[in-house]
Each structure stands twice: as structure tokens, then as C-alpha cells.
């Protein structure tokens, strides 16, 4: 899908992907994000659930915490989020309560997605203003990072099933939904 400002969004998503790459080297689920205001990255985040032993320390929260510790009044309503994986229900709600302007993500989060994957927390009737969410920017790259991570055995989680037979798959099924990138 050819649109004028594709390069702009892809540029920021590339930064988010770089964060996800960094997460892998830190033994964290490779989800990376950047917050962007006026075309500039104002915060970066990676998942921190393993190190913090806290299942709520997702990349979005890590980046937001940096942003708020520097400026508690940071104008999030003028800020966009670029995240390699669709925000989960928790993050989708947090972003809405923080009044984020828009969310751009790579691949869908079929398990916990909060901006369409499982629930539509960004637009459901609620007391906080809605925000738009656009998926599919470098989707394949985001999925490949996740696959690379999941073939490594996650020894911490008490999963009954062994993940011995996991192999890295390279072919990615095309997604029915179109990549939608709005004009700026």
C-alpha cells in the first residue's frame, strides 16, 4: 500500500524493532516501543517482566515511566506510540487512560491484544477518549523476533508442556487485513 508518509511511520517502527532486538539480548520477550512527539522519539521501552518479576512491566509501561519521571505533565495527547506487537488489553487501557493520540503496531497480539486482536479497548465505550490504532507496519519482522525468542526455552514459566520440539519457522502466513497507514 503506497502512501505518502509511509517512510515516516516505518522509520519510527524501525526504532521500535531495534528496541525489540535489544530485548532479546536481555532475555526479555522481544517487544519494543518508542513514543514519538513532533516527529521525535521522546522515550523507548522494552519488556521488563522477567527482570522485574512483574508481569505488568510491558514495554509501553517502561517507556511511559521514563517519560513521566522526567515530566509528569508530558502531553501524551500529542504523542504517538510505535510498538512492534499490538498492545495487550492492559496496555491498551493504560494508553487510553493516559490519553495517547494514536498507536501504530507491527503484528497482531492474538492472545491478549487490546486494540483489535482480542478486544477493542481503544474504541469501546468508556469514560476516556478513544484513540486510533493502526497495525501491520513491519509485521513480518516483529513476528520473526518473537519466533526467535520462543524457540529458546522459557524456563521460568511453570508451563506443563515442554517446548522441546519448537523449531523456527520462516514462512509467515499473509494476513487478511490490509496494512492501514493513515496520512499524517
Amino acid at each position: 500500500m503506497e502512501i505518502e508518509n509511509r517512510a515516516y511511520h516505518e522509520g519510527h517502527m524501525r526504532s521500535a524493532l531495534a528496541m525489540a532486538e535489544f530485548a532479546i539480548t536481555n532475555d526479555e520477550t522481544p517487544v519494543g516501543c518508542v513514543f514519538v512527539r513532533n516527529g521525535e522519539i521522546v522515550a523507548r521501552g522494552i519488556n521488563d517482566t522477567n527482570k522485574s518479576m512483574n508481569g505488568t512491566r510491558h514495554a509501553e509501561f517502561q517507556a511511559l515511566s521514563k517519560l513521566l519521571s522526567e515530566d509528569p505533565n508530558f502531553p501524551l495527547h500529542e504523542t504517538d506510540l510505535y510498538v512492534t506487537v499490538e498492545p495487550c488489553i492492559m496496555c491498551a487501557s493504560a494508553l487510553r487512560q493516559f490519553r495517547i493520540r494514536a498507536v501504530y503496531f507491527g503484528c497482531n497480539n492474538d492472545k491478549f491484544g487490546g486494540t483489535g486482536g482480542v478486544l477493542g479497548i481503544h474504541t469501546d465505550p468508556s469514560v476516556d477518549p478513544t484513540y486510533p490504532a493502526y497495525g501491520g507496519i513491519f509485521r513480518e519482522e516483529a513476528i520473526m523476533l518473537l519466533r526467535r525468542f520462543y524457540v529458546q526455552e522459557n524456563e521460568k514459566a511453570p508451563e506443563p508442556k515442554m517446548k522441546k520440539n519448537r523449531v523456527l519457522k520462516f514462512e509467515i502466513q499473509p494476513v487478511a487485513a490490509k496494512v492501514v497507514i493513515p496520512p499524517l
Binding site: M53, N54, G55, T56, C88, I89, M90, C91, A92, S93, A94, Q97, F112, G114, I121, S126, K156, A157, P158
Partner: peptide, 25 residues
Amino acid sequence: YLCTGLDLYVTHEPCVMCSMAILHS
């Protein structure tokens, strides 16, 4: 592991974010 096996008491029904945080935990 996280809050496995633990009980949570809270004075008010948690919001979407908190409810999902409870699930994640």
C-alpha cells in the same frame, strides 16, 4: 512465579488495565 497462588482483595472493581494486570499476574 508472579502472583500465582495468591489472592487479591480490592475495595473497588478494578478497571480494564488493572483487571488485565491481575490476569497477567
